[in-house]
Nucleic acid binder design. Structure first.
Length: 156
DNA sequence: GCCAACGTTGGC
DNA sequence: GCCAACGTTGGC
């Protein structure tokens, strides 16, 4: 029984095109420094889980589909002093931050813009659309995931 | 354990 | 660039 997810990214930082260009179209989803997001990755994500890929900031919207392709493992950037996500307080024997590998499935020909998503009654209640929603790793209800894919398949 | 201060996110 | 919402930190 797969769970469904949404990953949020600033395209200026890492876009779906960057994922398309990555080796094997796969990337470690590193740099997440939020406990709730960490818990989802570490405790709930499983290989094979589908992922909606969301761009924030510029033309915010759902731009593609990806898949979780690994179990969670410690995020090495937490111990790299050169990395902007360096966390000197994270002990090596009890890593604070985790990541999973994410593989591209599809770049949508017509992304679903945030205003459009907001206009769809069947997506009401979706975490992404809640006021003040900032979580970069979110679970998505099955019904909402299927509604999004239906909108894509009908060329919304 | 409370809460003010601060930093970050992200829509607009 | 503005600002609302949220998370984290740290003094008490």
């Amino acid at each position: 029984m797969p769970r469904y997810w949404l990953l949020k990214t600033e395209p200026g930082c890492f876009s779906i095109q960057d994922l398309a260009n990555a080796p094997n179209q796969t990337t470690p989803w590193d740099g997440v420094r939020n406990y709730q997001a960490r818990n989802f990755m570490r405790d709930a994500m499983r290989p094979g889980d589908p992922v909606l890929f969301y761009h924030s900031i510029t033309n915010p919207g759902i731009v593609g589909l990806a898949e979780i392709v690994s179990e969670a493992r410690p995020d090495p950037t937490q111990w790299d002093p050169e990395n902007r996500h360096f966390d000197p307080a994270s002990p090596a024997e009890a890593p604070r931050w985790y990541l999973v590998d994410v593989k591209l499935q599809e770049i949508f020909a017509r992304p679903l813009s945030l205003p459009f998503l907001r206009s769809r009654p069947e997506l009401k209640g979706m975490e992404l659309l809640k006021r003040g929603s900032r979580l970069s790793v979110q679970p998505v209800d099955k019904e909402h995931f299927e509604a999004v894919m239906a909108l894509i398949r009908q060329g919304a």
